[in-house]
Nucleic acid binder design. Sequence first.
DNA 1: CTGTTAGCGCTTTCAC
DNA 2: GTGAAAGCGCTAACAG
Lengths: 343, 343
Amino acid sequence: MSESKHWTLKSIAKQLGVSNATVSNAFNRPDQLSEKRRTEILAACKELGYFGPNKAAQSLRRGKFDTVALVLSDSIEYMVSDPVASRFMKGVAAVFEQHKINLLLFSGSADSVNSINDFVDGFICYGRPRNRLLAEQLKKIRKKVVTVDFNIHRSASVSIDNKAGAYEVAKLAIKSPNDHVAILGLRLLDTHLTCRVYDIHSMEIDTSVAHQRLQGYLDAISDTGVKLGDDRIWNIPESNSDFASIAAKEALNSVPRPNVFLCMSDLIALSLMREAIQQGIRIPEDIRVVGFDGIDEAARMLPALTTVYQHSEQKGRKAAEMFIADAHHAELLGYELSIGGSC
Amino acid sequence: MSESKHWTLKSIAKQLGVSNATVSNAFNRPDQLSEKRRTEILAACKELGYFGPNKAAQSLRRGKFDTVALVLSDSIEYMVSDPVASRFMKGVAAVFEQHKINLLLFSGSADSVNSINDFVDGFICYGRPRNRLLAEQLKKIRKKVVTVDFNIHRSASVSIDNKAGAYEVAKLAIKSPNDHVAILGLRLLDTHLTCRVYDIHSMEIDTSVAHQRLQGYLDAISDTGVKLGDDRIWNIPESNSDFASIAAKEALNSVPRPNVFLCMSDLIALSLMREAIQQGIRIPEDIRVVGFDGIDEAARMLPALTTVYQHSEQKGRKAAEMFIADAHHAELLGYELSIGGSC
DNA sequence: CTGTTAGCGCTTTCAC
DNA sequence: GTGAAAGCGCTAACAG
């Protein structure tokens, strides 16, 4: 096997003594030439080391790329280690792999989709991109867009009823009007800081997941007759244990110590539980904790975390399927309460 | 703001009354025209809604894509939820994001890289692809390739000394020549089954991670004077708890029950520990367990798992940096013993 | 069924 | 400084 030359459609056609179109047809349109001729040509190409039309040129010509960008809400770096995002990606990947569609990962903190827009057939956006410019740009994109956990005018979307889920799980945690409730919120504020949220009304009322969940909690609080102090809401910038444990410590040491903790993600809830256990605080005797998401580790915790299980993988599959089907509606997926010993 | 037309370099040049080259230069080669002219043109383009040269066409022309394929050892679906792979991806993503290089995920169980070869500047391969055809193809690729945890003749590579790590951790676990040792191996056999490995010599001796680790274990076993029964090695096809718990049950119930378990991944070790705890077997009194990888959950387990911590994220960064630098050497990264209460 | 040809949208010599 | 023109490698319409 000699150093094979760099073949192009043109050069291979000349070599075989046929026209370009014939070679192109042999690869792309079986019906345009005799079966015999086709297999002959394909065999000859393989023999010579030509593995088919250059995909980049083909795509440029056709305007089709068989590649979809998965726009994450945050940097790839961060998202890839988030268990909920991972499961979502798993679902997307499973469907796309089957359809031979390539997956391009794209950061939600990038300034613009320009650098990839010309390479992809469209976008699946997992969560509102942290960078607002990106979010704005997405609205104007002339390609297929499926959004997940947020909405853009007219594009297809998939999400769950966060408000209802939050409401239900909060109702489970709050047992009496005298409970002291704390809310450990995720990305309530557009900041990278762990801090308290003193003025709810200063937050933008948008369609983001965080605000939907918050609304659910607040409704439950109000319905149970609990009074929520104005320093009982924390903002955690990212769902990871470093940020979460800071808020957890602060909340556990605040006076009076809350006995009910509504956490906007399981990772946050687990951090809180670990911190509490370390301080000798008993769960659920001294404090009750609920989370959101339903990650594996939550079920393995002792006591198991009571949480809202969302079908992240199915969400991913759904998003991918909607992309492929060029759907334009909004899909609302179900969730399940997963009841553990934490409340 | 009216429905902006679909501009191309050509059409925008005509509109502005300048030549194509001038517009192209304005975007790509600032030195080829006066600063004044350049900013004028750029401003005009922005005004009209032309955001720069089409990337697909640009790439076709230049033969450069600013995109790298990350070829995983298994399906994307599976890899994305593996904590070790995730951390690796995190490292890769961090470096590439900084260099504005896009990341295309590619499945190691695909038949060929043909579908993406023409879209990328090269490949980073995380682990030997499960599909042998793919692995073969990679060897012949005419583009940059960096391999991780395995080698291909002449390409750059990064890995750790698996054999040494396995040896050290096994030495920690084995306390006496009378210990009964079991090995829970990961991907020792090319099968999707959880089963025992009766004939070590039937396995291919290759450079794969699994075999290096096995060699380390066997050396430690031999050095400590332990006798390893010929039915004491299990093969687990994937590092996930479903497969692992099957092997764990089998091993725990085998007679005589082993008191030392050498596990080729933390996920396997944790499954084993959970199974043992459930059966009322005490760790480390009744059995001793060691893992490999150093995932977060291992440190949080009670007792904490003794394991070989590898710097997966750094591995990812290193691989990305080597790709960018077009390195051609083999890099060996360090590891650390992480000592917990499991042995 | 086969061959010619005009682009897809761009970059880059090369002459002006 | 600028503009004309030749491709990058391919597809699809059209004529034969």
